[in-house]
Design a protein around this nucleic acid. Structure first.
Lengths: 225, 225
DNA sequence: GAATTTATGTGATATATATCACACTTTTTT
DNA sequence: AAAAAAGTGTGATATATATCACATAAATTC
């Protein structure tokens, strides 16, 4: 177990500011847990007791909206999960669910607090991460409410391709009903519009496998032509 | 000017953790500026150079969405403005505009960075503020996209009454077109639905003056009956 | 205080998308 | 391999709300 964290290949930016001694403590103050597809990592409404760090895999952040479950975003390792909850509120305000097989490090809050307290560089990196998230959330929210469904679906495809899978070819990480929750539409609209994109030669689709053939068009649709 | 900040009656929670010496430095590292109604405090697209702290008054945070201007939220002193931008991105991702006469303290970024670096309690309070904002943004966003217009208008009225003016009687701080931007509707829908609320005896209205007469109904509408 | 601009009220119409209903397909379970 | 469950495709219909088009009212400007 010695040097477990020091030698970890998937560190957060904040963790990279730490020294060998911190890593030593970190190793003894965390537990790594595997979750398989569909398992709840953080559950809305329960008490938040640890800091969760997504070490590998994909997860979705989602919350119960007034009428249905809304997926806020899809995140990819390495990233902290549920930081805002741990500090802003003791009760989780949203859920985090594994999209594929994931590894999560649960870090003792007291120890994490100690790092924040004693390591200003660490603390500053956490601030940066929170700031970036907030900005992203603002524009994501403005887009979702203002664009119509076609544009939002285009956005999701581009996000998956550019940021999550980093390839023009990928497999949709969820079913159409969930995609609806991510884009704020009905399952049926997702089906229709994906079919439309395929018919128009913008994507190629077989089952959940998608290849973006005409990224330009997709971007145009995203910008709402 | 001595003790200007120490004796300031409107401190941020973070500032309350500081000692006399910090306050001394703060006094010499900031400038207080007055803005009148409608003036831009922070402008989207420009470089962010200072930390802005809203010392008194109301402001709206808004950004250019794909099709129209969206008001993210209305904030009230005391609060930092545009923190996420200063750290997350050098270019302002949103605008902040004075709703009434406001006072803003611009604090030197380098000095603010120094505080974050040397005063862990200060830094922790900033983290808390960022966390709370993020949680709030998530649920606000889920609500706005899922509820229909009636529910969102009810929410805005409740927010104004409960959090901003802390009275059941207040004057709408903006015109109906802007309210549309806050709720994601057209100006006309705002007009129609406010008239409807008045007709149903839920509010009393004369010009922009509003009194919430039946808060219970409003809450019911907010929860989407 | 007359003229101009800005804000608001209200009907008629258009439209994007939800919803319902059901066929078909794929995956999972037994 | 059969049976059950979960996921998807697609038409018909309903509906909330945008949009357009004006009328009226209030606030600014000259």
């Amino acid at each position: 177990m010695k040097n477990e964290c020091l030698n970890c290949i998937c560190k957060s930016k904040a963790a990279e500011t730490l020294d060998d001694c911190d890593y030593d403590h970190l190793s003894t103050n965390h537990a790594t847990v595997m979750f398989s597809k569909g398992e709840n990592i953080i559950r809305q409404g329960t008490y938040s007791t640890n800091i969760a760090f997504l070490r590998s895999g994909l997860a979705k952040i989602h919350l119960a909206g007034p009428s249905h479950e809304q997926i806020v975003k899809i995140v990819k390792a390495p990233t902290y999960l549920g930081l805002p909850t741990t500090f802003g509120d003791k009760i989780n305000q949203y859920s985090v669910t594994a999209i594929d097989k994931v590894e999560v490090c649960f870090i003792d809050v007291t120890f994490f607090r100690k790092l924040l307290n004693e390591k200003p560089d660490f603390s500053y990196e956490i601030i940066l991460e929170l700031c970036r998230n907030e900005l992203e959330t603002y524009s994501r929210c403005a887009n979702r409410t203002q664009k119509q469904v076609r544009g939002n679906i285009a956005d999701v495809l581009l996000d998956l391709s550019d940021n999550i899978f980093e390839s023009s070819c990928f497999s949709l990480p969820m079913n159409q009903a969930e995609l609806g929750g991510l884009v704020d539409t009905s399952r049926e609209s997702i089906s229709r519009i994906l079919a439309e994109f395929a018919k128009d030669g913008i994507i190629e689709m077989s089952g959940r496998k998608i290849e973006i053939v005409n990224k330009k068009s997709l971007k145009l649709i995203s910008q709402n032509g």
